[in-house]
Structures are given as structure tokens and as C-alpha cells.
Simulated scan of single mutants.
Amino acid sequence: MRIPPIVFRWLAIIWTIIMLIGCLTPHADLPGELVEFNDKILHAVIFAPFAILWILAGFRLDYVLIAGILFGGLIEGLQYILPINRTADWIDLAADGLGTLIGVGLAWVVQKTKIIA
């Protein structure tokens, strides 16, 4: 059964909102497990599904890669500007980009093997 792109588009929108909320939540309000987990790995892990979902929603790989990096930059900028007890970090942005790149690669494999879409 082929899953229509509109389903992935809604999942991508929901995941993007969850990412934004999670990344802009003050540290004191986050579950202890998330704060203790390696921050850089967490950035990569949340950006990989972002890329996969947007690509499966029908967006081009290169556009999603650029959007992931820009979205990571937006998040880091907001963490710097907003008074939420979060700090911006260039290495976090690099981890966001790496996670997006991994997601793009995985989505490319999924598309080539026609596993999902």
C-alpha cells in the first residue's frame, strides 16, 4: 500500500512544530533524560526525521537539506535571542546539518528502493 504524500506532509509539519517547541523549551522544563543525553547527538537525531518526512512529503532533497540547515540556524538564533535559559551553539548547528544530511541520505535510499514512496 502506497502512503500518499499528504500524510507525510502532515507528519512533517507536526514533527517540525514538535522540534521547535522542544528546542525552545527552557532547560528547567525539559525531562531530565533529555538534558542528560548528549546534546549534539540529540540534535542530529531530531533533524534526520525532519529531512526524511519532508522528502517523503514530496520536496526535493537539496531543498530539504538547505531548509534543515536554515531551520537549525533559526532555532539557534532564537535560543540566543529569547530569554529561555538556552544558549546558541555553532556545534549544535553543525549537528543539525549533519542530522539533516543523514536524513536526506536515508530518504534517498528509501526512494530508490521504493520501500515507502
Rank of each mutant, 00 (worst) to 15 (best):
A57L: 01
K40N: 02
L30E: 08
A117S: 08
L98D: 09
F37W: 14
H43T: 06
I17P: 11
L98I: 14
E36K: 14
L101P: 06
I116F: 00
F59T: 08
G77K: 06
G73D: 08
F59Q: 15
P5L: 01
G103N: 04
G32L: 14
W90H: 08
G68E: 06
L74A: 14
A95C: 07
M19W: 11
G72N: 03
L53I: 00
W10P: 00
Q111T: 05
F59E: 10
L42F: 05
L65E: 05
L101V: 09
I14W: 10
L74W: 11
T113G: 06
I3C: 03
A94V: 15
V45G: 00
F59P: 00
Y80S: 11
N85W: 00
I13R: 10
T87P: 00
Q111W: 11
L82W: 11
I52K: 05
L30D: 04
I41T: 14
V7A: 14
F47K: 01
L42G: 10
L20D: 02
L70T: 09
V45I: 15
D92F: 07
E36S: 15
L34Y: 14
K114I: 06
L106M: 12
I52T: 03
H27Y: 12
H27F: 13
A88E: 05
P49T: 07
L93E: 04
P4Q: 08
L24P: 02
L20I: 10
T16C: 09
I18F: 13
P4M: 04
A94E: 01
Y80W: 12
E36G: 04
R86P: 09
N38Q: 12
G58V: 01
Q79C: 07
P4W: 08
W54H: 11
V109Q: 09
L53R: 06
T87Q: 15
I13F: 12
L106Q: 06
G22N: 11
L56C: 04
L53H: 04
A67Q: 00
P26T: 02
D96V: 06
T16L: 07
V35W: 01
M19H: 08
L106Y: 00
W15P: 03
A44N: 12
G72V: 02
I66W: 09
A107I: 05
A51N: 10
D92R: 05
F47R: 04
I52M: 12
A117I: 04
H27P: 12
A107P: 12
A48V: 09
P83D: 11
K112I: 03
L106G: 08
L106R: 03
A57N: 07
Q79D: 05
G32D: 07
H43D: 14
I75T: 11
W54C: 03
A51K: 02
L65F: 15
L82A: 06
G22H: 09
P4R: 08
I84K: 02
I52V: 15
L78C: 07
W10D: 02
L78K: 13
T113M: 12
M19C: 15
A88T: 03
T25A: 13
G99K: 00
P5F: 10
G58A: 13
M1V: 12
A48S: 14
